[in-house]
Write a protein that binds this DNA or RNA. Structure first.
Length: 261
DNA sequence: ATGGCTTCAGAATGAAGA
């Protein structure tokens, strides 16, 4: 089984690239998309369904938005925190950042974690609240299902080796101690970063800023992840960052990450 | 570098991303 995650930075702008990439990767069972940036009514469904894929979407106009593109029909689709939690604050439910479904014996939870803008900003506080709520959500999910795969644009680099230049990382969003601690609390529920099962070196990234020739110079960050519960982690056969789509004309600033179970 | 690009929405001396 292969699961991929890719922040496409607008599915309508990246539609041809997403289709071409899926066609070049016929064994991907689920492609988890983030930042689709489109309302459900305007999602380009037919491009995928014509290829025989099943499409599950949870989007909004302009910002955010997540989707599952699956080779087989998925079961038990859930969207938003309210699918498992009660009394979710409206501001944490209104941004469409979470969709999940079940394939075989695995629940795949696709998330787009808020960026946070800048440390101590209102958006940073929102990110921390969102992560705390995600922890509660995952505690509920783990009561029901043992095998869970979380993937997506996590917008946090947990280790210095995940950043091309960590020298001032403590002052930057995505690598501050508080964000790392919030993510570590989630991992401590029983999840492991499967990329590090296979690769312990630095220099492997999933996002490069559009500006300043960052990709050409490999000035990137590893912020797109697959986090697996114990049995899935043991079962994992590979985890690959495919940098080829980042080389396309008019690329997303993120590139896909694929795990094989 | 207070920014370098890119997207969306809608007409900004913009907002947001990361």
């Amino acid at each position: 089984m292969q699961i991929a995650t890719w922040n496409v930075n607008s599915i309508r702008s990246r539609l041809d690239q997403a289709i071409a990439w899926l066609q070049s990767r016929p064994y991907i069972d689920i492609l988890c998309l983030q930042e689709t940036k489109v309302s459900d009514a305007d999602f380009p469904l037919t491009a995928f369904t014509e290829l025989g894929h099943f499409v599950y979407i949870y989007g909004q106009k302009s910002y955010n938005g997540v989707a599952l593109i699956a080779r087989q029909e998925l079961t038990s689709i859930r969207t938003g925190f309210s699918s498992l939690l009660t009394d979710v604050a409206p501001e944490l439910e209104s941004q469409k950042r979470l969709i999940s479904g079940v394939i075989a014996d695995v629940r795949v939870i696709n998330i787009y974690v808020p960026n946070g803008s800048a440390i101590a900003s209102e958006k940073y506080e929102y990110k921390l609240k969102w992560l705390a709520l995600l922890k509660s959500y995952l505690q509920e999910a783990l009561k029901q299902e043992k095998n869970i795969l979380i993937c997506g644009d996590i917008n946090i680099a947990l280790e210095d080796i995940d950043i091309h230049d960590p020298s001032d990382r403590a002052t930057k969003v995505m690598a501050s101690d508080i964000e790392r601690a919030a993510l570590q609390e989630i991992l401590d529920l029983g999840f492991k970063d499967v990329f590090r099962k296979f690769q312990s070196d630095d220099g492997y990234y999933s996002w490069w800023d559009y500006r300043a020739g960052s990709f050409r110079r490999n000035h990137g960050w590893r912020i797109d992840h697959h986090y697996l519960t114990a049995d899935l982690y043991d079962r994992a056969l590979s985890c690959e960052i495919d940098i080829s789509p980042r080389k396309n004309p008019q690329p997303s600033d993120h590139t896909p990450v694929i795990v094989e179970l």
